[in-house]
Design a protein around this nucleic acid. Structure first.
Lengths: 339, 339
DNA sequence: CTGTTAGCGCATTCAT
DNA sequence: ATGAATGCGCTAACAG
């Protein structure tokens, strides 16, 4: 069952070179020959050894998926989309998570683990610092960033500024003026990461509406449920008069809702909450959110990467717009009820 | 920067064989030599080509992760645990999802995509049918199943029977007698899959309590939020007197809670709900659940697989117990309030 | 403990 | 359109 290319060649009555060409769909093989080779291969259950093919060709037909986690909404959905798009083109997805613990600073990404192992790299949702990007580029492979833009690198991402602005504007339109913002930890933030842009959108919307920015209305925490919950509690302590929250992710937004519940407050009567993502489970708390197409982002990035590998021109960034999904966690502030 | 093994050999003043041995930590290399080789390799930035090493050795140091999805709670957590355990041992994780659409029957798993590409296979949470198992075994690699047992194959899984029994007993203890069950679609079910065992646990607990089983109290749907919601609606139609639900997964349980909400019913006053998983977001609806250690299951399975690959004896199945986490979605039935 | 040698199984020239 | 020959970069016997 574990036959080699020469067995196929013998059965088909051709040379190994012809088998190689026929099976890979290269031109300059007669239809008849190709068919004969195909059936011989099928009959023998022959599949080319990826190792041998890689060694000989220098290509691995494998893409490295670099991500901090797979068990978070955005990441798992992007990976889902990317893996399917890659496989549709005959590429393998090599999953590589780098530990991002909340205790210790994360380890630096070590390019060696991907050396000579992949044809390209997809970096999912995590802004690497300059030296890490440089070291990865040193591998000599095309690389695309998803969800976090890196200067000079191809990126597939959201219009985070507009996202923050729209979410905040939605709250302003409802009559809120004390609108808080929950974002990621400062140490997670590079100048080009989504949290920063979403925050700028928040500030921009406030400024446009002539609402003064209050530093006390801004809290940073971990990018998950507990982080959102803790951040919201801190925000309540700092600003008891806060009436609305724009959280940089749905999980944080849901955490904020839990914090409100901890204090016996009603959503949206006592606190309006809007998040970012379009997490399915947001429905549980009627979370209003800015929906992003995470699976499609992953698939799109994978497709672009394969085009780059195939020698295509360097594409421009792909920027997706989010859409507001009002499920009910936002409403007019209590103080504005009489308006 | 892309140096070969012979460059390292030249710089270190040894043969390529010694370089290979030294760098891989094999015995029979003097400390001094090993150190000299190491520094030469470091200086040149040398990392062995995986393709060449695989071709020469027959081993790939790669494990195939076979899973229907990555964007569901159980799967992403198992994968997270497995990938980290694999990487800690220097193994790569090749992610391979096979499309499980709710529209069309899923494609059969094609072993060819993993042929000569991996040293072992982890099948996550999906019971393959006999012929698929046979074809995968034909690849000649060790294989471990996580979350779904397959006769004759090593498995890491839950005690699903006890899980179903304990969850149901919890409801019985609260005074419920009309206890429904929401499970996966019949076509998803093989005789050894978790849904079947959880259902048997449900039936066993009912039988133990002398409560007659009513087929109308059982509904099958898709294993996700919408599936749970639809199933619960159907159950309400079939049995308006149902007071409690044991759902085979947290996502389905949360769907059931949404269905109750759709009808204006209170949880747990009008409907008690218990799920299985320990999904973090269950907190949003105070979901009571049977907690399982998904990350650990993935890591354990990965470790066992590597031991098998290293030539260890075939291990017995690893069976985890779940623990009841009462977050509030269960309580006495209305009719029993006076008890 | 270390060096020599022979492949591993293909893709790819260069012929024809 | 096809074949013959070469080598990708390393591991594994074997020899010493």
């Amino acid at each position: 069952m574990a036959h080699g290319i020469d067995e196929v060649a013998r059965v088909a009555g051709v040379s190994t070179a012809t088998v190689s060409r026929a099976l890979r769909g290269l031109p300059n093989v007669s239809v008849a020959t190709r068919e004969r080779v195909r059936s011989a291969a099928a009959q023998l259950g022959y599949v080319a050894s990826p190792s041998a093919a890689s060694l000989a060709s220098g290509r691995t037909r494998t893409i490295g998926l670099l991500t901090p986690w797979v068990n978070h909404w955005f990441f798992s959905n992007v990976i889902e989309g990317a893996e399917q798009a890659l496989r549709a083109q005959g590429y393998d997805a090599l999953l590589h998570t780098f530990e991002v613990s909340r205790k210790v600073p994360r380890l630096r990404v070590d390019p060696d683990v991907l050396r000579r192992r992949v044809d390209g790299i997809l970096v999912v949702g995590f802004p690497l610092d300059d030296s890490e990007v440089v070291s990865l580029l040193g591998l000599g492979h095309p690389m695309i960033f998803i969800g976090s833009s890196v200067p000079g690198q191809v990126t597939v991402r959201l219009d985070d500024l507009a996202t923050g602005r729209t979410a905040t504007q939605h709250l302003i339109d409802l009559g809120h003026r004390r609108i808080g913002h929950i974002s990621g930890s400062p140490d997670d933030i590079t100048p080009f990461s989504p949290p920063v842009a979403r925050r700028r959108g928040w500030l921009a919307a406030l400024a446009d509406a002539g609402i003064p920015a209050d530093p006390q209305l801004e809290v940073h925490g971990h990018f998950d449920l507990d982080g959102g919950r803790e951040s919201m509690h801190q925000l309540f302590r700092q600003c008891p008069d806060v009436t609305a929250i724009f959280a940089a992710s749905d999980e944080m937004a849901m955490g904020a809702i839990l914090a409100a519940r901890d204090l016996g407050l009603q959503v949206p009567q006592d606190l309006s909450v809007v998040g970012v993502d379009g997490h399915d489970l947001g429905e549980l708390v009627r979370l209003t959110t800015m929906v992003q197409p995470a699976v499609e982002e992953g698939a799109k990035a994978a497709t672009l990467l394969l085009e780059l590998i195939a020698g295509g021109a360097v594409p421009g960034d792909v920027v997706y717009q989010t859409t507001l999904l009002d499920r009910g966690s936002t409403g007019p502030p209590r103080a504005a009820h009489g308006m």
